[in-house]
């Protein structure tokens, strides 16, 4: 078991290092750099010598591998560098923007889970085939809706037509209602698809037939026997959901003007602020790796059948 653990940890560290390297290559090799964009502006009245000094202070001109080693050293000590545009350390910016995103993301995820479970269970409990078909096509519809458009439509309908949610000066919770719904939709879709598939799959197993034959009702079978077995495999798409969550946050925060990591990302791309974007990429790769590590380690705990195999499959 400890061999398996070490192996998984080593893999995780490798993926993290490689993600850092890829993002470094992509973002530091870029043609226009942030220092020039900000200080080349003629209105600032800087002469070439001054610009060169500023570039030297950001170490923008040293050899690429020197920058690489320096950056990796800084990241390891938790220093993500300076945002050239904002003039503050990236870690300060991230810390300031993280709470808003965490709140949005956790609420969005909870709502998505509720949506997905509702879709999956209602569709398998419903006695009418047409209703079942209709409910089961909801996830494919959800997947096909552009998140940014959904946000705009929600504003249009609930704020402007029905005037249910105020656009100007909403309360701290009111302003979260529409963004949370917007974010929940793209996350609920893959979750519901996997759930529906798993439930259908488990319902065909012999033990379900046995339980039914013993006189258990459909509800009883679904909650007591099927739910446990169907929920477990959804853990495997945790990483995919995290990606959806990040993309959803960028779009949702942009549409609703929320001040979180997503909005920060959008502005960083607009101003080619590589330092900020790289920190965000590396941190989300870190989160992805940790999530998958937890899922892998949790699986044998949740599913006793895997406990004996865990060491062998490593």
């Amino acid at each position: 078991m400890s061999g398996y653990l070490l192996n998984r940890l080593g893999q995780a560290l490798f993926v993290l290092w490689a993600a850092f390297t890829i993002s470094f290559v992509l973002l530091q090799a870029m043609p226009g750099d942030a220092v020039l964009i900000k200080f080349q502006n003629p209105e600032l009245g800087l002469n070439p010598q001054q610009i060169a000094d500023i570039r030297a202070s950001y170490a923008a001109d040293s050899a690429i591998w020197v920058q690489y080693l320096q950056t990796i050293g800084r990241f390891l000590t938790g220093n993500f560098g300076y945002s050239v545009q904002a003039g503050v350390p990236v870690s300060t910016m991230l810390a300031a923007h993280l709470p808003a995103t965490l709140k949005l993301a956790s609420l969005g995820f909870i709502l998505a889970a509720v949506f997905a479970v509702a879709i999956a269970f209602v569709s398998s409990l419903t006695p009418f085939a047409w209703l079942r078909g209709a409910i089961q096509s909801v996830p494919s519809l959800f997947i096909s809706i552009p998140t940014f458009w959904l946000g705009i439509m929600l504003i249009q309908i609930f704020s402007f037509r029905l005037k249910l949610v105020p656009v100007i000066n909403p309360g701290p919770w009111q302003e979260l209602i529409l963004p949370v719904i917007t974010l929940a939709v793209p996350i609920a879709a893959p979750l519901a698809q996997v759930l529906v598939r798993n439930i259908d799959d488990v319902l065909t197993r012999p033990f379900v037939a046995v339980a039914r034959a013993k006189g258990a009702t459909r509800h009883w079978v679904l909650w007591r026997h099927v739910a446990k077995n169907a929920l477990l495999p959804t853990l495997t798409i945790a990483g995919v959901l995290f990606g959806e969550l990040i993309a959803g946050a960028v779009v949702t925060e942009t549409v609703f003007g929320l001040n979180g990591i997503g909005g920060l990302t959008e502005r960083a791309v607009g101003s080619q602020d590589a330092a900020v974007l790289q920190a965000i990429v590396v941190l989300s790769a870190l989160a992805f790796v940790i999530i998958n590590l937890i899922v892998d380690l949790l699986f044998p705990v949740l599913d006793p059948r895997l406990r004996t195999k865990a060491g062998a499959t490593a």
């Binding site: 973002l27 870029m30 990606g243 960028v250």
Partner: peptide
């Protein structure tokens, strides 16, 4: 391991 949108944004910056 890199969220798709962040990957495409990095490429767009490049």
């Amino acid at each position: 391991s890199i969220p798709p949108l962040l990957l495409s944004l990095s490429i767009i910056i490049l």
